[in-house]
């Protein structure tokens, strides 16, 4: 008699294998554990050496970028941007600015001219005209008096003569 069997129950031959499979299948991560963690991705030959050099080259170019004024390409770009903007300003001024400015200037000069003529008109108003006419008569009177005096003198001299 087999000493190992101490109970009357039996199972199928593969029962314990299946049981183990079932338990593992219900435990998260067990299925993944079966998979090897092998990296399936590959790289071209000598890739990492090339990449190492690429990184160092990129680093060098970044060092130049720290001083953008000394980078030829950047300087040229800035100069061309500056020149273009200056040319654009000149162009727009000459094309769109002159007519408007001339128009404004002519209008302003017309306004100034009209103001001047108004002032002149005001200066030659009737009151001022009377003032000027008042100024003249005394002079005329003086002249008249002088003439009268002369006449008197002449007449007196005539009387003396007579």
């Amino acid at each position: 008699m087999d000493k190992k069997i101490k109970h009357p129950f039996t199972t199928s031959d593969s029962y314990f294998e299946e049981l183990k499979e079932n338990i593992l299948a219900q435990t998260p991560g067990q299925l993944l554990e079966k998979h090897s963690k092998r990296n399936i991705y590959t790289v071209p030959d000598h890739f990492f050496e090339e990449q190492y050099n690429q990184i160092l080259n990129k680093k060098k170019s970044q060092e130049h970028h720290l001083f953008p004024a000394f980078t030829t390409q950047r300087t040229l770009a800035w100069v061309s941007i500056g020149l273009t903007s200056i040319l654009l300003i000149i162009f727009s001024y000459s094309y769109f600015g002159t007519d408007e400015i001339n128009d404004i200037l002519s209008k302003e000069s017309a306004i100034i001219q009209s103001d001047v003529t108004d002032m002149e008109d005001k200066l030659t108003s009737p009151e001022q005209k009377t003032e000027t006419s008042i100024v003249n008569p005394p002079q005329q009177r003086v002249l008249h008096e002088e003439i009268v005096d002369e006449i008197i003198l002449e007449s007196s001299s005539l009387e003396e003569l007579i």
């Binding site: 993944l32 998979h35 991705y41 790289v43």
Partner: peptide, 13 residues
């Protein structure tokens, strides 16, 4: 062309 894995590994990916 830079992937080298068996079918199961690719399924996992």
């Amino acid at each position: 062309t830079l992937v080298d894995g068996d079918e199961v590994s690719i399924r996992l990916q």
